[in-house]
């Protein structure tokens, strides 16, 4: 009805059918993101700066945070529920650090497009810079938190082996995975705000469904159906392959097995491909839902 009332008048400019010049298409999204890599770096610095500006301990928090968590878990698993692992603190920390990297990056990253909506509304830039910068700042945190891990290893006489040189590769694979999952959840959160609460609950469940606080080897040979199901879940769970990337070199002093690395890499690249594809596909529609 309103539509009909808006017929253009004769003096209005009629749409001219003119061929658009060639070579003026938008560049591929991946190129756009790459062009803004300095922005990602700057956003990472900003995030770290803002986060630690007001705290006396500053960057120390990054190192203290996993340590305090570890103390809680260590107390629970050594005194309340006795665990079989020697040097349990190192074992825990080696599993918790990659887990905290993943879960924190995801929880912060899924809100990142919404949090930065003022920018998204006003400046043309690839929205992926926001979740990616969150992953970046958490990578910095993860790297920093290796310091207390090494301190703990030294204190508990855990041997330092050459296998530790694998850690940079582990960090890369973890980062690819985190980036993919975070991109996917960040775009979903734009459309459905409660994805955040859902993810919170899912992460809590996932912590216990993944070999973070325990090791696959510790599982007994129960035959009940639910235990079979649990084993199946552990085989599918990407974290069963990602956590050992850190824990094997740190705690067992050996390189992760080739199949483990292969599956982890497959999961990581798959997550990134799917995450990036879905994110960029939905990106033009973000602005209508902010």
């Amino acid at each position: 009805m309103i539509e009909a009332a808006q017929e253009t008048r004769p003096d209005a400019v009629a749409p001219q059918a003119q061929p658009l010049p060639q070579g003026t298409r938008r560049p591929p999204r991946i190129v756009e993101v790459w062009r803004f890599r300095q922005l990602v770096a700057l956003l990472v610095v900003r995030e770290l700066k803002v986060r630690y500006k007001r705290s006396v301990l500053g960057l120390l928090w990054t190192m203290l945070n996993p340590l305090l968590l570890m103390v809680v878990y260590a107390v629970v698993f050594t005194t309340i529920l006795p665990a079989a692992q020697p040097n349990f603190a190192v074992f825990l920390l080696a599993g918790l650090l990659p887990w905290l990297y993943f879960s924190t990056a995801l929880m912060q990253g899924l809100m990142s497009v919404l949090v930065n909506q003022e920018l998204v509304r006003k400046i043309r830039l690839p929205h992926a810079v926001f979740p990616l910068s969150v992953v970046g700042s958490n990578l910095v945190n993860f790297t920093l938190s290796l310091v207390p891990l090494f301190a703990m290893m030294a204190a508990l006489r855990q041997p330092f082996t050459p296998a530790l040189l694998f850690l940079p590769a582990a960090a890369v694979i973890l980062t690819l995975f985190c980036a993919g999952v975070t991109l996917l959840f960040a775009t979903a959160t734009v459309f459905f705000r409660d994805v955040r609460h859902l993810t919170e609950v899912l992460l809590q469940m996932l912590l216990y469904l993944s070999p973070v606080l325990y090791d696959l080897k510790q599982l007994g040979a129960h035959q009940s159906w639910w235990f079979q199901l649990f084993r199946l879940e552990l085989r599918v769970n990407p974290l069963s392959y990602l956590i050992p990337l850190v824990r094997d070199p740190v705690y067992y002093g050996r390189l992760p097995s080739v199949p483990t690395v292969a599956v982890a890499l497959l999961w990581a690249s798959g997550a990134l491909l799917v995450g990036f594809a879905v994110f960029t596909r939905l990106e033009p529609r973000h602005i209508h839902h902010l």
Partner: peptide, 25 residues
């Protein structure tokens, strides 16, 4: 479209100049 879009209130003017520059590529 809006002046100072993308300023981070917590950061100094100096930091914001660089941040805004990066936002514009």
């Amino acid at each position: 479209i809006e002046l100072g879009a993308g300023f981070d209130p917590e950061l100094s003017g100096r930091d914001n100049v660089y941040l805004n520059g990066a936002l514009l590529g």
